[in-house]
Amino acid sequence: MHIALTEEQTMIQDMAQKFAESELAPVAAELDQSKDLALFKTNLAKLAELGFMGLNVKSEYGGVEAGSVAFSLAITELAKACASTAVTTSVTNMVAEVIQAVGNEQQKQTYLPKFCNGEYLAGGFCLTESGAGSDPSAMKTTAVKDGDEYVLNGSKIYITSGEIAGCFVVWAVTDATARKGKGISCFIVDAGTPGMTIGKREHKMGQHASPTNEVHFDQCRIPVSALLGEENKGFAIAVGELAGGRIGIGSLALGIGLAALDYAKQYCQDRQQFGQSISQFQGPQWMLAERYTDMEAARLLLMQAAFLKDQGQAFATSASMAKLFAADKANKAVYDALQLLGGAGYIQEYPLERMARDVRITSIYEGTSEIQKLIIARDIFA
């Protein structure tokens, strides 16, 4: 693996950092409290204009075609300022990659430019159901073929960007007689399609600015042309794209962890106790030394997974390792950073309280830490 970043990767990282500092950081606390959707959408539109919604999309469809390493770097920088914006950017890129990977030429020409130019502010990834979370192959949503249409029935839950997505990739059972996981297909469903309704915004612990919704399908008719890839072979699409999504969520966790440590470091330098800066005491020094080491290890794991993906090599296990480590260590980093602030860390005037709520979900979505361990273990014993 070549550690040094290319000129393009460095440029994207710098651009993301500058945007995060100038546009996201000043309003992150406000967005957390107000959930101002108009302001949130404004920032998403600006990110699309800068190319961040099509980082791994080919240039012929309006994308940047920068690769997974650049994607990881960008999500990390955005997450340092606003986790809600970072997760929306990550999932939208994932939806675009699904369409690019398995869509036909007409589908790619129709949808990909809309993500890249900001016509679609976000994309929805409709996989999880109330009875099919860690085991998505147990989904109950169905798509029954009726002439030149499919009829969708069922519900999806915890869908990031549900109320602002321009389109959704949706998984449904198309062959109920097939063995588990083998009769599932993937479809593109446009926002506003009759029969599809978006549920209320969930009241979440963190990442408040990013809307999370249920998506319901009741006799929702979509054309046969909405099928992505081959019928009954959609589950493999989900498994493959979740692996790439884990690079995004691991990078998001890394960004939050680093931001928390940076804030705590400055606080320790400024805070006086017992006649000196608390940064002079071994306890805070060692806490920060351990957590920064964790974050550097997480960064290297993420870079390895992204590099393998860019090289067209098997990367699923590396992505699971990176996501597992980054999410768990970022949670530890944020809580240690909050501890270093003492009582101030528990007060909303300081950002650590928000970061503690925002980082918690990273060990749950795109596959829990426990599921990542299963994936890694299966590879070890294969």
Rank of each mutant, 00 (worst) to 15 (best):
M1L: 11
A4Q: 11
K18V: 03
F19N: 02
E21F: 11
A25D: 06
A28Y: 09
S34G: 08
A38V: 11
F40Q: 08
L44N: 12
K46S: 07
G54C: 06
V64Q: 11
E65T: 05
A66W: 05
V69I: 15
C82N: 14
T89D: 03
I99H: 00
A101M: 01
E105N: 11
K108W: 02
Q109R: 14
K114Q: 10
F115I: 09
C126L: 11
E129D: 07
E129H: 07
A132E: 06
S134I: 12
P136I: 08
P136Y: 08
Y150E: 03
I157Y: 00
G162V: 02
C167V: 10
G192V: 05
G192Q: 06
K200I: 09
K204Q: 12
G206F: 07
H208F: 00
S225C: 04
K233M: 13
E241D: 08
G245A: 14
S251A: 14
Y267E: 06
I278L: 05
Q282N: 07
G283H: 04
P284W: 10
R299C: 02
A316E: 13
F325L: 05
D328C: 10
N331C: 09
K332C: 03
Q339K: 08
Q339S: 12
Y350N: 06
R354I: 14
R357C: 08
T362E: 04
